[in-house]
Design a protein around this nucleic acid. Structure first.
Length: 634
RNA sequence: GCCAACAUAGCUCAGUAGGUAGAGCGUCGCCAUGGUAAGGCGGAGGUCACCAGUUCGAUCCUGGUUGUUGGCUCCA
């Protein structure tokens, strides 16, 4: 007999060789219905697994990450089977579960079309109806290789060859489809219900652009049709918040064919942008930064000195002035190095914090451009901090606190990543290790949760990145803190120490918005275009009821303007409902309705964007109210 | 950059078995003076992204170019 310990601590006694399914049947009928996979002695396993030893058992349903992953992973296998049935001879890449679904990569002469997706979905239905069991089989590495060689599955062969010799290789079959797979899977295809194929895409084999491009089909699956519908509905809703759409609707910015990746900011977008920059400048004062501005075009020799010429050339634009070659800056650091060197510095001055709203240009590949999120020209709210080595941890912590404080103003949730040494890195490995350790230590001391992103650092140093989410859950790097021991070396920076000798300062690059453009993109999606009053391009709009009220409206307009409120006046010959609808769609925080009544009482009828509630008050009271919103950044 | 799809009025989109195009919104004009999410009527507005080719004739078919969208990160 075996002793099986359950999640609640209960111990079941079962016979040697009992399957997990049987055990679940004994635990509860309901559980039996919803169970998808299990964890036995810390290993995820199929429910069909037969237990040969005592241990702890945990059961997962669709609501658990483990269950959901297995569900989607099994969905991917079913999709692959459907593709195999419809397109014989197709070769298989990989097919994992991902955040909101799954994908599978295929290699076939046939080019999939959206019509094919429908056909594949029909085929999937049949496979679900047939309720094929998922059967696990374990082979030696040699036998597994033979199996896939017989089927000419070159990608599977490559995957198996990468495994250590002597490995036990598991295969999963359902019906006439067999795939190399670690598992676990659901008991049978009939457990799957609502599967939908979403999109087609190209994807390089193993994510390496020197490899062949395979055809990827993305799909998702849910326990019930209603959950799937809800998910699709959420996606539709999210699309309405897309910053590219709102940017157009609210006249914030535009992207034109004449400048792919070079956004135009329109008057309203510019107001928003200026409000953000003004806010950042207040923060500069508060956190003791000094602001500088360095040139956009600088001589090639500078970029050779900084290492950009060797490490970043493909991303840079160049130009000629007289007979000299110049580069358009892709980063602000080299200019800032020169600014630092302009004078001799004492240890007493450190840390020196130079901030710069720096416009940089980068040649991004055409296929990666995306609205304001990924552009070819953007403004970094950059800063470089020069300091003693003994000040490093404190300075990093200060920057982390500053970022956290600023993101809080917008009510952002963010993820933190620590990115380590990339392949094209400049400098010694042990210096990198030291820098990485400094960053890690600061995160640990502040108890900030983070994940490590191997090999994703900048070429001159490791970094802490702050990622924000867009409306459909894609994350974008915004804030960044990068520790750099290379630039001070390359530019021979120094300060005069207590001993009267020259010493090398340490340096941090940091940005908080990251890119003002990207940050605006995120903000638009975050607020769905309904900006808080302090950011709203138009904070209040005066709507006249009839021609009788024109003079009074103009007076109110002037009063508000004088008090610094961003106000617009709508005195067109339209009905009030029409004007309100328009102002509402422009997401203007306050509408001030003015008719005969208000004119007589010297008031305005304030309608709130959020609630639609009306409140009649004097202009002074309204100004006081809206000023309070602005001050509190509401 | 690579794979696929898409590109028609300022915006959102319809359309043509190949015979140079339509709606709604917006804009402009006139009428209505209207009290909290669209009042009525009328007008203007298009080299159907660009360049070639096929054809008597191309917005439509073919090829190329440009741009846009989704993906190329999730590792059996």
């Amino acid at each position: 007999m075996l002793n099986i310990t359950l999640k609640d601590g209960k111990i079941l006694e079962v016979e040697h060789g009992t399957s997990i399914v049987k055990i679940i049947d004994r635990i509860s009928k309901k559980l039996a219905k919803f169970a998808l996979v299990a964890r036995f002695n810390n290993e995820l396993v199929d429910l069909n697994t037969v237990l040969m030893e005592s241990g702890t058992l945990e059961i997962f349903d669709f609501d658990s990450p483990e269950g959901k992953e297995a569900y989607r992973h099994s969905s991917a296998h079913v999709m692959a089977q459907a593709v195999q049935n419809l397109f014989p001879g197709v070769k298989f890449g990989i097919g994992p579960a991902i955040k909101d679904g799954f994908y599978y990569d295929f290699d076939t002469e046939h080019i999939f079309t959206p019509d094919d997706l429908e056909k594949i979905e029909k085929q999937i239905e049949d496979i679900l109806a047939a309720d094929y069991p998922f059967v696990r089989k374990e082979l030696s590495k040699e036998d597994a290789l033979q199996f896939f060689r017989d089927r000419n599955e070159e990608y599977k062969i490559e995957l198996i060859e990468a495994l250590p010799p002597g490995s036990i290789i598991s295969l999963y079959s359902q019906g006439d489809f067999t795939d190399l797979c670690k598992g676990p899977h659901l008991p049978s295809t009939g457990k799957l219900k609502a599967i939908k194929l979403m999109t087609l895409a190209g994807a390089y084999w193993r994510g390496d652009e020197s490899n062949k491009m395979l055809q990827r089909i993305y799909g998702t699956s849910f326990l019930k049709k209603s959950q799937l519908d809800e998910y699709l509905h959420r996606l539709e809703e999210a699309k309405k918040r897309d910053h590219r759409r709102l940017g157009k609707e609210l006249d914030l910015f535009t992207l034109e064919e004449e400048g792919p990746g070079f956004p135009f900011f329109l008057p309203k977008g510019m107001v928003l942008r200026n409000a953000l920059e003004e806010f950042m400048r207040e923060e500069y004062r508060k956190w003791e930064y000094e602001e500088i501005k360095t040139p956009i075009i600088l001589n090639r020799s500078l970029w050779e000195q900084s290492g950009h010429w060797d490490h970043y050339k493909e991303n840079m634009y160049f130009t000629q002035i007289d007979d000299q070659e110049y580069a358009i800056k892709p980063m602000n650091c080299p200019g800032c190095m020169i600014a630092y060197k302009h004078a001799q510095h004492s240890y007493r001055e450190l840390p020196i914090r130079y901030a710069e709203m720096g416009l940089v240009h980068r040649h991004e590949k055409s296929g990666v451009l995306h609205g304001l999120m990924r552009v070819r020209a953007f403004t970094q709210d950059d800063a470089h901090i020069f300091m003693l080595y003994s000040q490093i941890t404190d300075e990093i912590k200060k920057v982390i606190e500053m970022i956290d404080e600023i993101y809080r103003v917008f009510d952002f949730k963010y993820n933190v990543e620590l990115s380590t040494r990339p392949d094209n890195a400049m400098g010694e490995v042990d210096i990198w290790d030291k820098a990485t350790e400094d960053l890690r230590q600061a995160l640990e001391e502040l108890k900030i949760p983070y994940v490590i992103n191997e090999g994703d650092g900048a070429f001159y140093g490791p970094k802490i990145d702050f990622h924000l989410e867009d409306s459909i859950g894609r994350t974008w790097q915004c804030g960044t803190i990068q520790l750099d021991f290379q630039m001070p070396e390359k530019f021979d920076l120094h300060f005069i120490g207590e001993d009267g000798m020259k010493h090398r300062p340490a340096m941090i690059h940091r940005a908080i918005f990251g890119s003002v453009e990207r940050f605006i993109g995120i903000l638009i999606e975050h607020y769905a275009g309904a900006f808080p009053v302090w950011l709203a391009p138009v904070q209040a709009k005066i709507l006249s009821i009839s021609e009788n009220n024109l003079d009074y409206c103009a007076r109110v307009f002037q009063m508000l303007k004088k008090r610094g409120i961003r106000v617009e006046l709508d005195v067109r010959n339209e009905k009030i409902g029409y004007k309100i609808r328009e102002a509402q769609m422009q997401k203007i925080p306050y509408m001030l309705v003015v008719g005969d009544q208000e004119m007589a009482d010297e008031t305005v009828a304030v309608r709130s964007r959020a609630t639609g509630a009306q409140d009649v008050m004097s202009v002074d009271v309204f100004v006081e109210m809206i000023k309070k919103d602005i001050d509190q950044k509401k």
